[in-house]
Simulated scan of single mutants.
Amino acid sequence: MLVPRTEHVGVRPLWDCRVCGEPWPCATAKVELAEQYQNFPHGLSVFLGSCMLEAIDDLAAGHGGPPADLYERFLGWAS
Rank of each mutant, 00 (worst) to 15 (best):
A34T: 15
S45Q: 15
P66E: 14
A27Y: 08
L33N: 02
A61H: 10
L59R: 12
G62M: 00
P25I: 05
L44V: 08
G43A: 05
V19I: 11
T28E: 12
F40P: 09
E54V: 12
A55W: 06
R73C: 02
M52V: 11
F40A: 11
V19A: 04
E22D: 03
S50C: 12
R5T: 13
P13E: 05
A55F: 06
N39D: 15
D69P: 05
D69R: 07
G43Q: 06
A34I: 13
E32R: 04
C20H: 10
A61M: 12
W77Y: 07
T6N: 02
A60S: 15
G21W: 04
G49E: 05
A78C: 04
Q38P: 12
G64S: 01
E32Q: 10
P67C: 03
L75C: 00
S79N: 13
A60E: 15
G10R: 04
D57C: 13
L59D: 07
S50F: 12
D69L: 08
R12H: 00
L48Q: 02
E32A: 05
L75M: 06
H63E: 02
N39T: 14
P25R: 06
T28C: 02
P66T: 08
V11Y: 06
E35V: 13
N39L: 13
E35N: 09
N39A: 15
L48A: 04
P13D: 01
A34E: 14
A68N: 04
H8N: 08
R5I: 12
D57P: 12
P66D: 07
P23E: 10
G65K: 09
F47Q: 09
R5N: 13
L14V: 11
A27F: 00
R18Y: 00
P4M: 05
R5C: 11
P13N: 03
P41T: 09
A68M: 09
C20V: 07
W15V: 05
S45H: 15
G65D: 04
W24N: 05
D58T: 12
L59S: 08
S50M: 11
P66A: 12
F47K: 11
R73Q: 00
F40T: 03
R73E: 09
Q38I: 13
Q38W: 13
R5P: 13
G64E: 01
P41R: 06
P23Y: 05
P13A: 09
V9N: 05
L59Q: 09
